[in-house]
Design a protein around this nucleic acid. Structure first.
Length: 933
RNA sequence: GGGCGAUUAGCUCAGUUGGUUAGAGCGCCGUCUUGACAUGGCGGAGGUCACUGGUUCAACUCCAGUAUCGCCCACCA
């Protein structure tokens, strides 16, 4: 009992949480245990230098709940964790830090820079793992992996070599998305296109004949320096006669042809398009069709190069644009400028406008068809199987409709550009000899060996691989692949992947491709796609909007000034600071309270509905913090009552209340189990909440008080047992969502029941027992009776403890028998002075009235009763019943309803009608009596 | 231009194969500091289920369309 102290009056998460995680880890409870059926979740590896945001906290909560639930069910549960080296993101962070120290990457040696990244990784890598521990995540820390670990790097090289040898990786010179700030190629996915304000410049291109000119419209006038044609639609009558003639390209002195291509839309602009094959994807394609020359006019930082006239060389592309427009205008060749909205492609990391740029890059073939030499192309070998895995149901998206997004993307996919001109990442395992021949292998020695390259100078490719290339191997590389380890055999394929929709393409699809290709099996059975966590107004959380919430601040709390500082420092746009400060002060005038990890987790689970983003409101977290306190205090009550008291276990002595709460618990357990299995964390959370608060606390605990407060009550011992046992099971049921609180309480509750263990987290998840419908009916009856009394009290403004007399009228033998059994309980919980049945011919005194099914309750209130209030209340009841009766009569008088609806539905309507009519008669009678007073 | 989603109480959301008096939390009103808990108890008010048609004995639920909002994909210069 090392860890246990006297229970404070209220729940203090800080005390509890800090003690338990360390203990769990010391006991190594989160490694796979036993020999049950394996259950595996791969943690989407966060960026090693990052911090966890609310989205991570959300996903980690769900993964932890699943892992804990399955661990408690006896599965060999593995939650594989680790971090991603995050090529571009990390390189940028480190470069920025170096610049703060006055150092520049370009002045450094490559190995020197890599060393700086590794040391930054060591320094900052602990932030995430610390955050995860604070959240209570039960990952297998001893097998934590990093995508640049030697084993994972070897896997990357093996995959690259294998795909290259299969003809599925190739090197090619073509137009790529080029980031001129980061000086690297990007994949299609890393380019974000958004609509921006721009202009449409109408330029005059003189005909070489000297007779007139063509007018072309462009959004990028500077690229005219690289034009190699002007195109019109072949059927465009305005220009048809000019097709094939030459045009004098202004400013350059070059002559270019007027060509015809049906790609051109005659309706748009002037119907004439300038063609720049080296700087536009469409123009590139057209250039291929028409054998046009490519003129690259940019350096790799998008300055104008030597291919352009000297006047423009060295200018940045935007400078060049101004200059070109000015020069054209000076020559009278600028017809007009229209405002124009256009889609501007930007690099997702740098924000720089991406330039289509002709370079040599490495690609994974995802599109080509089967080839004549028998080599299956990428479409057949990689993309097709990935589509089929989902189509055949071997992989299931939850919610299901994400499969459409997945198919849509794969059906329109392009080859994947995997090379990046960065220093941080997996170096491409390709070497060049002085003649430029390419050799791909696992290492330089391997290459020399295989190709007999003794004594030949070899130079390794400078580029690194796209980060997602290594992330795509995560489900098997972390388990030891390419070695055939025991771990790999046991835990692959994994059961479920929990992630956001934003990386379905980046990551999910690629894991499926690689998993199928290299493991010959799907990497996971289910893909649970979570919604996005948004702020209380539904805005996306982002540093630049200043609406970020750090999970740790919700756990530990934070004062307003610290929060303001945190949100306003290190902004990309410092001018936003005042607005962010104002909004923060408005939303959190007192800062953020400490809610604790359990409350945060429970909230996130409760909000996890399918197919919907989540607006996170701290009010909601506060509500669940209160729920933690409720559990805490219920446990206090239980412990107070079992200390030094006998706890019996003979079921024969069970009261109907004991049977009732056991039965309700069974329903709750069944619901929680089912909903965890369906990934309905929201329903699981509400089943727990409903049971613990509104059944166990609101009713059962209250029902035990009259028994336990009476000296030597015959049911006391068993009641204590039930109090403990139900709480103990409820704790196990709640543990996957609230690991800390349940552990703390379980350690106190288990021993009196003769149970013990290192931790609740390795106990079994409770099993649902039988439903006791007899007990449920009896307690429901009792609740109805007490509700009637409370309604009278509540609406008549009678003090809760003022003793009342209760007169009963009507009812049947069952009511009398039940009242016989529970009269004492009703008297105590209803704070009644007396209970008496009205004699058959006895006049009803002036009283407040309530109905409990067919039982009529009268509370005599001579002199005290507010007749008007009571009449108004009864009339409201009257109105309700009349409405019901009207509706039910209408239904039942419809012959088709009676004929077609299932018998049970018709009977139900009849019963409801009878009950409503009887109730209405009772209320009318009471109203009549009131009139006479 | 294609695809997906949302619209239910003041707010945030449930409502599983069509049959419930359409629910919960927060907020609101009233009341109560009783030996688990005021981070609480008890009672209460509050909804033409976005709109229009259709299918059906029966529609929040199924179908079609409309409106508003949001997201993803796409080469219109």
């Amino acid at each position: 009992m090392l860890y246990l102290r006297a229970m404070e009056k209220s729940y203090q998460p800080k005390d509890i949480e800090q003690r338990w995680y360390q203990r769990w880890e010391d006991l190594d409870l989160f490694a796979p245990r036993g020999d049950g059926e394996p259950y595996t979740i791969m943690l989407p590896p966060p960026n090693v230098t990052g911090r966890l945001h609310m989205g991570h906290a959300f996903q980690h909560t769900l993964q932890d709940a699943l892992t804990r639930f399955n661990r408690m069910n006896g599965r060999q549960a593995l939650w594989q964790c680790g971090t991603d080296h995050a090529g571009i993101a990390t390189q940028m962070v480190v470069e920025r830090r170096l610049e703060a120290e006055g150092r520049k990457r370009r002045d450094m040696q490559r190995d020197e820079f890599e060393a700086a990244v590794w040391s930054w990784k060591e320094e900052s890598g602990g932030v995430i793992t610390d955050q995860m521990r604070r959240l209570g995540t039960s990952v297998d820390w001893r097998h934590e992996r990093f995508t640049m670990d030697e084993g994972l790097s070897a896997a990357v090289r093996d995959v690259f070599v294998a795909l290259y040898e299969a003809g599925l990786i190739y090197r090619g010179k073509r137009l790529v998305n080029w980031d001129p700030v980061l000086h690297t190629a990007l994949s299609d996915l890393e380019v974000i296109s958004e609509e921006e304000h721009g202009s449409l410049w109408h330029l005059r291109y003189p005909l070489a004949s000297g007779e007139g000119h063509m007018v072309v419209a462009t959004t990028r006038p500077e690229t005219m320096l690289g034009d190699t044609a002007v195109a019109v639609h072949p059927d465009d009558d305005r220009y048809r006669h000019l097709i094939g003639t030459q045009i004098t390209l202004p400013l350059t002195g070059r002559t270019i042809p007027l060509i015809a291509d049906s790609y051109v839309d005659p309706e748009f602009g002037t119907g004439c398009v300038k063609i720049t094959p080296a700087h536009d994807f469409n123009d590139y394609a057209m250039g291929q069709r028409h054998n046009l020359p490519l003129i690259n006019i940019f350096e790799d930082d998008a300055r104008i190069n030597g291919a352009a006239p000297a006047a423009y060389q060295g200018l940045d592309r935007f400078e060049a644009r101004k200059r070109v427009v000015a020069d054209l205008e000076a020559e009278g060749l600028l017809e007009r400028i229209d405002d124009h909205r256009l889609m501007v492609p930007r690099g997702d990391r740098s924000g720089a406008v991406v330039e289509p740029y002709l370079t040599d890059q490495w690609y994974v073939d995802l599109t080509s068809e089967e080839q004549a030499d028998g080599r299956p192309g990428g479409a057949k070998q990689i993309t097709g199987p990935a589509i089929d895995a989902v189509r055949s149901g071997r992989i299931r998206f939850v919610p299901e409709n994400w499969d459409k997004t997945y198919y849509e993307w794969l059906n329109n996919i392009q080859d994947w550009c995997i090379s990046r001109q960065l220093w941080w990442g997996h170096r491409i395992p390709a070497w060049y000899d002085p003649d430029g021949n390419i050799y791909v292998g696992h290492s330089e020695a391997d290459v020399r060996d295989r190709h007999g390259l003794e004594g030949v100078a070899l130079r390794q490719d400078e580029d690194v691989l796209d980060t997602w290339f290594s992330s795509g191997l995560w489900p098997f590389s972390t388990l030891g692949w390419p070695e055939e380890t025991e771990r790999l055999k046991t835990f692959y394929p994994t059961n479920v992947l929990v992630t956001g929709f934003d990386i379905i393409f980046f990551w999910v699809a690629r894991m499926i491709m690689f998993g199928l290709k290299f493991m010959d099996a799907v990497p996971f059975r289910d893909v649970y796609i979570t919604g996005l966590i948004r702020d209380h107004q539904g805005q996306k959380m982002s540093k630049s909007k200043g609406n970020i919430l750090d999970p740790l601040d919700l756990i530990d709390g934070i004062d307003l000034e610290t929060l303001v500082t945190k949100r306003t420092t290190g902004l990309m746009q410092p001018q936003m600071a005042p607005a962010i400060e104002k909004a923060t002060r408005e939303q959190f005038p007192d800062g953020i309270k400490a809610y604790g990890a359990d409350a945060l987790r429970f909230t996130l689970a409760a909000l996890a509905t399918h197919g919907r983003d989540i607006k996170l409101d701290t009010g909601r977290i506060e509500g669940y913090r209160n729920f933690c306190n409720k559990i805490w205090n219920a446990a206090r009550y239980v412990m107070m009552n079992v200390e030094d008291q006998p706890v019996a276990i003979q079921p024969a002595q069970a009261t109907v209340f004991d049977r009732w709460i056991e039965s309700r618990l069974s329903s709750a357990i069944a619901s929680v189990r089912e909903n965890f299995e369906r990934y309905r964390f929201d329903l699981a959370a509400s089943a727990i909440y409903e049971f613990v608060w509104h059944e166990y606390c609101d009713w059962y605990l209250e029902l035990t008080k009259p028994i336990l407060n009476e000296a030597d009550h015959p049911a006391a011992a068993h009641t204590r047992h039930t109090l403990l046992s139900v709480l103990e099971q409820a704790l196990r049921m709640t543990h996957p969502l609230m690991p800390f609180l349940t552990e703390e309480i379980w350690q106190r509750v288990a021993p009196p029941l003769g149970l013990a263990g290192d931790s609740i987290s390795v106990q079994s998840f409770p099993q649902a027992g039988a439903i006791d419908s007899e007990a449920e009916a009896e307690v429901k009856w009792l609740q109805g009776l007490l509700l009637g009394i409370r309604q009278i009290r509540g609406e008549m403004d009678i003090a809760p403890r003022k003793p009342l007399d209760l007169l009963l009228e009507g009812g049947d033998d069952k009511d009398r028998a039940r009242m016989e059994r529970h009269g004492d309980m009703v008297r105590k919980l209803g704070a009644l002075e007396s209970i008496r049945w009205l004699a058959e011919d006895e006049a009803v005194p002036a009283s407040a009235f309530a109905l409990a099914a067919s039982l009529k309750l009268h509370v005599p209130l001579a002199g005290v009763i507010d007749l008007d209030a009571e009449r108004a209340r009864l009339e409201r009841e009257q109105g309700r019943r009349e409405q019901d009766i009207g509706r039910l009569k209408g239904k039942l008088s419809n012959e088709k309803f009676v004929a077609n609806a299932p018998a049970a539905v018709v009977q139900k309507a009849r019963d409801q009608l009878a009950e409503a009519e009887a109730g209405l008669a009772d209320i009318n009678a009471q109203l009549e009596r009131l009139k006479k007073l």
